[in-house]
Amino acid sequence: MRHLLTPQDFSVEELEDLFVLADDIENNSAKYSHICDGKKLATLFYEPSTRTRLSHETAMINLGGSVIGFPSGNVSSATKGESVADTIRVISCFADIAAIRHPKEGAAAVAAAYSSIPIINAGDGGHQHPTQTLLDMQTIRRLKGRLSDMTIGICGDLKFGRTVHSLVEAMSRYEGISFVFISPQELRMPDYVTDILHDRGIDYEEVTKLEDAIPKLDVLYMTRVQKERFFNEEDYIRLKDFYILDEKKLAAAKPDCYILHPLPRVNEIAPEVDNDPRAAYFLQVKYGVLVRMAVILTLLERN
């Protein structure tokens, strides 16, 4: 029995199989619409994340399965202080597969250790959120036609951004990848991520202005820069415009430099960019469902 706790749980070859399966689901959806008839997905969300929960539930319903879960916003009464280990042993008797989201790091690994059904980590604190990484990768793969040989720019809060740490680690397994990290000094990529790049001999550069990086990028991954992350108001006001993508900045980008964002967006991408053919952030949502369908099938060994 397999689980998906981190993107590293799958080899590069296994990931390719998963992405190919997602492609097939996209092109032949009828073939898959009853493949999970009678199967149940449990969504165990210990913290609210409606978007991620709905994406998992949609994925299971699209496969013909059904969904059970905690009543939203009422986890404490649902679990009555029960440990994750005990909850998952109980849920294993009800469902065939479970997606768990929990504010503490490693909660999904605990669930996997005590579970008799496959576990999908749907986010464990600041640690991992593998289905987000896989959908980011599938979006890049579909738009660029490859996952190798490109320069990926990552912009915004790189210090606290779990999704970008995971994406960098996952993409650094492919040939010919280089990175440009665009952030204020205070929010630079942490050492544990750049150490991985050093170990794997992967080029990266760090800049503070989006304008300086944008012409060389093949993909630009935007994230939010939160005001609370800054030491003082002056720095925030001085720096915030460096990390807002608008048409003027985008004009310097390559014609096939796609723009990704994990959503929700606040103001770091101007609405005028939405109509640009390079804007891919809503497409990510679509690939999110398809990738989660492929993950469910793979873990249930129905592929």
């Binding site: 440990s83 790091e105 490693g106 690994a109 600041g126 640690h127």
Partner: peptide, 13 residues
Amino acid sequence: TNPRCITSIEHEL
């Protein structure tokens, strides 16, 4: 000793 780790709240692990 990571205060964000699941072991910080589930002491029997």
